[in-house]
Amino acid sequence: MNPFEYAQPNTEAEAVALLAERGSTVLASGMDLMPLLRKSVVETERVVDISRVESLRGIEAVGGGVTIGVLSTLEDIACNPLLADYPSLKDVNEGIRAIQVQQNGTLGGDLCHLPNCWYFRSGYGLLGRENGKSLPEIGDNRYHAIFGNAGPAKFVSASRFAPALIAWGAKVRIAGPEPDAEKWLPLEEFYQTPKTERHGVTVLTPGQLLTHVWLPSAENKVSATYEVLEMEGLDWPLASAAATLELEAGRVRTATIVLGHVAPTPWFSLVAADVLVGQPVTPQLAQAAGEAAVSEATPLSENAYKVRLAQTSVKRALLKATNQLEGGL
């Protein structure tokens, strides 16, 4: 790891000022950043440890919804009563099976987690190119994208909370780069699919800091996330789906379905939502929604199985949200 300087700002404004200079990187818990630095996948001249910025902590009721500071740990999210009406978040928590990550991992760290693509992590860049060829395309793409992969990016978005948050209509607050600048974005607009190596996986520019996530009121909506994990322990999902449903007289009034780990960004499935609207959620309907969700999948050479996983995730998320998921599945 090359030497760098280490800054510990006490306020958002200080953090933003420190981040505005080129070559600065945000440090939350370090579980993602440290590996990236050690492998020189990320090079930095300054690490900005935001842990002293108190305003980034806390989960609070605001404007009919809930704001979550990016430094909230997974444990904070799991335990906070204000989030009790957002079970799809708890579902994500349940899948992250390590006390170390529960107690130290942060929401911001998850949302900004860089892709786990093994080519990216081996130093081939986000697009995984070597000698003009796309390694994910010609190489081993068993864990790569089945949607949104027509361009050069084939990796999958790493965030586990993003699908559930997006399905709830979450917005995120971004501070900087000017000292008092801030803006709110729908979380889905926070993510982007890079077209070249100059682009990142989020819209953040130097000097910007993700500070808070805001969730609208849960009202009477139901929700669930279903993740397919390869292993029972700490592992990354092969695919996931989050569903938030507004039910009226036993029928779906509105539905938002967001898949995770299947595309370079969290992936809306409008077609699946279409199948649901106006219908009561039954196992048959959930199955149909799952099938619709993957009808336009474009798997790569080695990952057709992920189409099935995505389909199953959608189906099971819907059944789980409506308390119909049976058996040990």
Binding site: G148, I166, G169, K171, P186, E188, T193, T256, T265, S269
Partner: peptide, 11 residues
């Protein structure tokens, strides 16, 4: 991202 959600949502 495959377009935006149909779900109406307020900021």
């Amino acid at each position: 991202m495959s377009g935006s959600s149909k779900t109406p949502r307020s900021g």
